[in-house]
């Protein structure tokens, strides 16, 4: 019981911290923010239920007025803005990523990359595009076109989520609660 609660809380803190630290470099020297990677890791490491709850807890604290979204954004205002769909999609993305992770027997690297692509891109973009379509009064194809700007970065992050998950499983197999 306590372990479930602390894992959820500590991963909520991890998502926050990944949005606060300076950007990290990719191999080519391109800087990325690691926050959406944190969402993917919640699913691939903690599994569906705990991962989604960690993201929900993080979002509750953002809504309550902590500037924890990358770039120092926060408050209820972010839920009234055009990217609200992505925020609503975050916990569902973590849930789906965790669900995929729990239900495959593929190697952690492949499973986690696939889970991150399906949850962290596929599912997340459905919500993000719907949100932009409503908030900016655009048709779905128009909103999809706008969302494509984020696709290359998120594809790279899905691969990194897979690599991080694989390293964790090698370093300490028991740490992947999604596979426990």
């Amino acid at each position: 019981m306590e372990r479930n609660l602390t894992h959820i809380a500590l991963f909520a803190a991890l998502i926050a911290v990944l949005g606060l630290i300076p950007k990290i470099d990719l191999a080519a020297g391109v800087p990325i923010t690691a926050q959406s990677l944190g969402i993917m890791l919640c699913g691939t490491v903690l599994g569906a239920k705990r991962g989604a709850l960690a993201v929900l807890l993080f979002l509750a604290l953002v809504a309550a007025g902590l500037p924890l979204l990358s770039g120092g954004r926060g408050g209820i205002g972010v839920f009234a803005g055009p990217s609200v769909g992505f925020l609503i999609g975050f916990p569902i993305a973590a849930f789906v990523a965790g669900w995929v992770m729990e239900r495959t027997t593929l190697s952690p690297a492949v499973a986690a990359t696939a889970a991150s692509v399906i949850g962290g891109i596929g599912v997340l973009y459905v919500f993000g595009i719907l949100g932009m379509a409503v908030m900016l009064d655009k048709t779905l194809p128009e909103a999809s076109f706008l969302a494509m700007a984020f696709l290359p970065g998120d594809a790279v992050k899905a691969v990194i989520a897979g690599l991080v998950t694989q390293s964790l499983s090698r370093m300490r197999p028991a740490s992947l609660l999604s596979r426990a």
Binding site: R3, T6, V17, V164, S167, R172
Partner: peptide
């Protein structure tokens, strides 16, 4: 050079370790 994605592994591990320690402290 500036830190690369590899630092995310010890960072995630730190979160898992802290979760275990805090759980023990709670219990």
């Amino acid at each position: 050079r500036r830190p690369r994605w590899r630092v995310l592994v010890p960072a995630t591990l730190a979160a898992l370790d802290d979760a275990d320690r805090v759980a023990e402290a709670l219990r």
